[in-house]
Design a protein around this nucleic acid. Sequence first.
DNA 1: AGCCGTTATGGCACAACGTGCCACTAAGGC
DNA 2: GCCTTAGTGGCACGTTGTGCCATAACGGCT
Lengths: 219, 219
Amino acid sequence: MSAAPSPRTERPTLTERRKAETQWEIARRAAELFSERGAAGVTAEGIAEAAGVSLRTFYRYFRTKEEAVTPLLTGGVRQWLGDLAAAPAELSVEEALEQAVRAALTPAGTHAEAQAEALLSTRGLLRAVPGDPALRSVWLRVHAETEQSLVPVLTALVREGTDPLDVRLTAAAANAAMRLAMETWAATDAAPDDAERGPAALAVRCLRGLTAGLRTPRA
Amino acid sequence: MSAAPSPRTERPTLTERRKAETQWEIARRAAELFSERGAAGVTAEGIAEAAGVSLRTFYRYFRTKEEAVTPLLTGGVRQWLGDLAAAPAELSVEEALEQAVRAALTPAGTHAEAQAEALLSTRGLLRAVPGDPALRSVWLRVHAETEQSLVPVLTALVREGTDPLDVRLTAAAANAAMRLAMETWAATDAAPDDAERGPAALAVRCLRGLTAGLRTPRA
DNA sequence: AGCCGTTATGGCACAACGTGCCACTAAGGC
DNA sequence: GCCTTAGTGGCACGTTGTGCCATAACGGCT
């Protein structure tokens, strides 16, 4: 329980960089193996071996075998939440969500290339999700945590006095829209920066579809 | 892969009734133990022993230790889907969802007592969910399956030509509303048939809050 | 009633999961 | 340079979940 080695925004120490590197290496190898053989066909020892660490060390980085791929699944979440929290006050909640989603899912800026590649890696993994119960479980768990993180951010966005239950509903709905957008994109071949069929466009479309869906008239 | 022993609506045979009975017995005992000591503090052998079956038989009824409680979590789902599919055509999708939810979550009819008791058992289990990662995982998995089952039912309800993505969005949103309603009710002491704070009332309130939530104006 | 194919059950062995513990080694502060 | 701290690997162990086979109970038949 000692204080973090670099408490402020200092440059991370050598040890920390190495740890982050091995964490990514494990996650990358795990995603490769899971995509190839399915989660049930891969042993934790196999992942550890492919990543060049011992089995014991593997379990120091990830609690379970399946959790090893979570870094690839939580890709844009941190940025999404950050952008949402920083949304200008003149935007409605809907608009703020759309704008943050666009920023988080559109590869741009100096890291555009890296972001696009990360999205493609994530898509490769997502394509294995529907048919793999274990992967499906992690995918759901990641989104459950995102939903939890969304609640305080939205609470700050909404006008004071709003029923907390409505905030949780909004968080759940927006989160579900994101999930379906990613799942839908994973089933296509659209490029990560496709303006019409890319993840950002799909996410916006899903957010808008949310409010429209329930009002659909019957035949 | 032989045909089911009672293909039609025949009275179930003795063996089938015994199987259903042991399945419930295992589920009940598992829920008790999980609520007391948490999922991590209970062994599959412990559940099997409490239910009076061998460990090997336990795993013939449930694939994993945690899955043993799913029967308690899927309580009203079947009825909900059935009522929804049978909704009269003059109702809008919103109204059909509300009506089906009411029917599924309001203890009534000849089995009112049993339904109320089942809801209370479910609530006991749900109260252990937030603090128990393993239970949380099952809870999410159950809802993911419900969402999948909801899609074809809603497809039949919605006017022809509706984008399948919109249907999936509606299913996800409605399902999330149900989930939050149950979680909210679990945190209260309201009776299962409470007209204002019971599960049915909360579910209707959550369904309505869905459409309102995203439109909330900023401060 | 009694026979017989089918099916549920229990016991056993086994690979894999995940953790506690200890020794070892490398990083970062003095 | 030394020394504290922290990451790593190896080992043992309880638990999970499955394949396999023998046994017992059920359901259909004559």
